[in-house]
């Protein structure tokens, strides 16, 4: 499993760069991850990220944008504004989770 340096620390990632160890993530790391993909985190970003973290902890699966909409109240439209073009993958990346596997 590759190890890469994000900000000031080393983290385990998969071949694409998504974090693979849930516990290695914290909010400082999220800021560094977001910066890597050109996103400045606002309160709305944090709402999405916290929902993803929580839902993954409960279900062991990264929620799709549709589930994020239903569970956190952040609409799909808003998700596309917060995490442009590829909200599903970008939210997962910043939240330190694997990319979502669901089709819808």
């Amino acid at each position: 499993m590759p190890v890469t340096t994000i900000g000031d620390r080393e983290v385990h990632v998969d071949a694409e760069g998504f974090l693979t160890v849930y516990e290695e993530w914290d909010e400082d790391l999220a800021r560094a991850l977001a910066a890597q993909i050109g996103i400045d985190l606002t309160d709305d970003h944090w709402r999405a990220i916290r929902y993803l973290r929580e839902d993954y902890r409960e279900r062991g699966q990264t929620p799709t944008p549709r589930r994020v909409q239903a569970g956190s109240g952040i609409s799909i439209k808003e998700q596309f504004v917060l995490f442009p073009k590829k909200p599903g993958k970008k939210m997962a990346y910043v939240a330190g989770l694997p990319k979502p596997v669901g089709c819808v």
Binding site: Q36, P84, K85, K86
Partner: peptide, 16 residues
Amino acid sequence: ETAPALVPDFADAETD
């Protein structure tokens, strides 16, 4: 020397 961070390629530039 530190290798560049491994970051997913979200291919933002490729919008066509």
